[in-house]
Design a protein around this nucleic acid. Structure first.
Lengths: 190, 190, 190, 190
DNA sequence: AATGAATGAGCATTCATTCAT
DNA sequence: CATGAATGAATGCTCATTCAT
């Protein structure tokens, strides 16, 4: 057999992400992906079962990268507020440095395609945040509400903030990022 | 305007919304819309220039309906906090009663298609909220931050909250809705 | 709407039959049919649901034509032997004049595709022959065996006879046709 | 010859026959054969030049097996009628025990693919029967007709009889098999 | 206004086959 | 000998849209 080009899988992933961000999920076809990845359309089927499989694997892959980038080296010794702030900053840091990944995740997450992925496989990005919230609730630093609500008020505004940075409505800088973090904190603190 | 036309236009709109929520934007084709709306595919072209035109007009139409439903009868005499709370409640009320509209807007808003619509035409749902925020900022009730940030912390968590209600993660009731409103208030208040 | 070309349906049918006889069922594709029928491939889908539908309708259509050609004007006043001979002659007459139809039926009948057609819809070519056989059995002119067996010994050798004429093994003429009819008669007569 | 090879060749043959009987010649692809035979698709090309070569070799192989099974140990000392009856019984015996082979031959024989095989290579199943017929004609036991016709009236009804047994129209038993043999005999006897 | 007919372009996918190992 | 990787060509079919009525 021929040696398997390790890059080919990655090329296909990258081509797919770029296309989805440029022309949208709806317009992204296998042949367009193939052309962009500079492989034959049929080659994609050597690496993936079908289009759905490709998109799912891509989604799970990017999610995993995000989670690792944001919560790797999570310092357990930090104070609650420091850890919280740290996470949000790392999130912004990652998304700013990986616009394509972020926008892809956003678009995919809002499409009905997502529902077909086995929930078990989805690594929740905020998983490590959740224990932080639980801890904070026990210490009565955070409000005694559903942990999910704490997550919502932490991540949703931040994500929208980044999106508006990307579409030009806003420009993220140290000052307004500080404010956003402060507002999230105010929302969830007891 | 003739009655017949009005009905057909609406049938096409409704068929489109339903399809997009059932099978997604990517899978929604003109012929499927036609079948669901019980008209010939070519009839759609009597009412709309092409597919893009149909989607844009639908989007603007639904946006307008939402805005009107939420901010109609906006009582200027209410206190800042009352007006704020009122708006959020009306938003939830509307979305719960119009699941299809809400989910459609959500899905459309995250697709690159949106960018093709002339920004001028987009009625921002939070438009009336903005003056509320401006007023609140002047009175130093709200934080001295970009008004956009105030909107983000008000609407993003609430929208996610409704979405999670629809996908079964949470169930909205008086108690947790109160908490959400409180958290938004805490986030933006000075 | 445009006026429907009544010939188009027939063109598609004819193109399909010709192709199946030339290159075989397995190699007959929708695009080849389209090219031969001088229509766009998508036009076929205006007339037929899908490939299976096209083939089924074609099969039923040809079957019906054969039955009508062979048993139309079936003369009930004839003697048993005359009626029998008449049917076989008409069968040969039709198949010789409609080589394409005959070979198509033969090929289709031996493919697994046939099993998907609702048995109810299949007009059995020998239907009128069956009552002839029943009558003959009552009069003890024919053997007291399953009517199906009588049909088998009447039609199978005749069909093979025609097939061998078409592939050059034999040439049908009055003399050998008479012999075939005689042999069939000997096989079934009491 | 090496054992390993023999097995693989046979696996490929069997997989092909099964597939053709299950899904039809048209739907039987090299990759499906490979999967069913549990070899790589490229391995098939070690044993066969291409798909056509595989099908041809398979056809010739099965034909040979049938002929051997039916006419092996052909007892020359038997009377004409005994030898005749013996052959037909052996044919039924073989086909009932080898449904797959029989149906494959039937399907293949009616497709234009057959015509591509060099006629020289085709072992005619009825070859040994032919000398029987010739002998019978000389003894004026059989009709003075083309030997081919005798074969047609012997094999065609019998084959159809078996086919109808397989598709459930009839069930072969000693009684009706006797009748079929009798009818064939009546057809050809002088 | 409304629509069935028609189509070229494109879709996701599978095909038979080749190649390098 | 055996096979995974790779692919151009082809598959059945749907697409958005136009046209004639």
């Amino acid at each position: 057999m021929r040696h398997k080009d390790e890059n080919k899988n990655e090329n296909i992933f990258n081509a797919t992400i770029q296309l989805i961000n440029e022309i949208g999920l709806a317009e992204t076809s296998m042949s367009k992906i193939a052309k962009k990845a500079k492989v034959s359309a049929s080659t994609i089927y050597v690496y993936f079962e079908n289009k759905e499989d490709l998109l799912n694997k891509l989604y799970l892959n990017v999610k995993k990268m995000m989670t690792e980038a944001i919560f790797n080296n999570f310092d357990a010794s930090l104070s609650l507020q420091e850890a919280f702030e740290n996470s949000l900053r790392k999130f912004v840091e990652f998304t700013l440095a990986n616009k394509d990944y972020f926008l892809f995740i956003e678009q995919f997450q809002n499409s009905p395609l997502l529902n077909k992925i086995s929930r078990d496989e989805i690594t929740d990005i905020c998983e490590p945040l959740y224990s932080l919230f639980e801890k904070g609730k026990k210490q009565h630093v955070f409000k005694q509400v559903d942990t999910n609500l704490l997550a919502i008020f932490t991540l949703q505004p931040l994500m929208q903030f980044v999106k508006e940075h990307f579409n030009g409505t806003t420009t993220i800088n140290e000052a307004n990022l500080n404010k956003v973090i402060q507002m999230s904190w105010d929302a969830i603190k007891a």
